[in-house]
Nucleic acid binder design. Sequence first.
DNA 1: ATATCGCACAACGGATACGTTGTATTGAGC
DNA 2: GCTCAATACAACGTATCCGTTGTGCGATAT
Lengths: 74, 74
Amino acid sequence: MKKEELLKKIGEQIRVIRIEKGLTQKQLAHLIGKDQQSIQRLEAGNINPSYIYLCEIADGLNISLLDILNSLPT
Amino acid sequence: MKKEELLKKIGEQIRVIRIEKGLTQKQLAHLIGKDQQSIQRLEAGNINPSYIYLCEIADGLNISLLDILNSLPT
DNA sequence: ATATCGCACAACGGATACGTTGTATTGAGC
DNA sequence: GCTCAATACAACGTATCCGTTGTGCGATAT
């Protein structure tokens, strides 16, 4: 699968989960010491987040990274 | 969990799976268009690999990223 | 009309990943 | 002894991530 697709899909999935949790981009960002723009780029698939970054996101969403990847559309 | 621990654990897990598959660092590297030193740093936990990088590693190991994360020691 | 909120996009800069090269170490085998 | 394979470590350059700042746009509320 193409790199851009992978980033788009995980970004969309993170957005879905964030909204399920009732959080705004800003709220999620502040939970993990980042800013809203960082979350925006991540959700838009504009960046290739590091492993640690993904772990932090999962932490902010109060789920495991496995849960995020598990629910990815194939 | 500390960042260094997370990187060490996923690195060790990748090493375990690589060896299970009977591959050397160099062989795995060449499968995904990288060099041996990159794999060495990844397995040693010296770098914070990107999502795409992890997907490539999983691809080279012929498993899914989920399988790698699933078997991580807690 | 104006303010506020959520989201998107661009540019800058510091930090870091990654490829490359070179070198060292260890162990197996001749 | 020597050679080769596998792994590890360091340094350099380039590319990219990520935080920050600023701007803009639509929707809603006052």
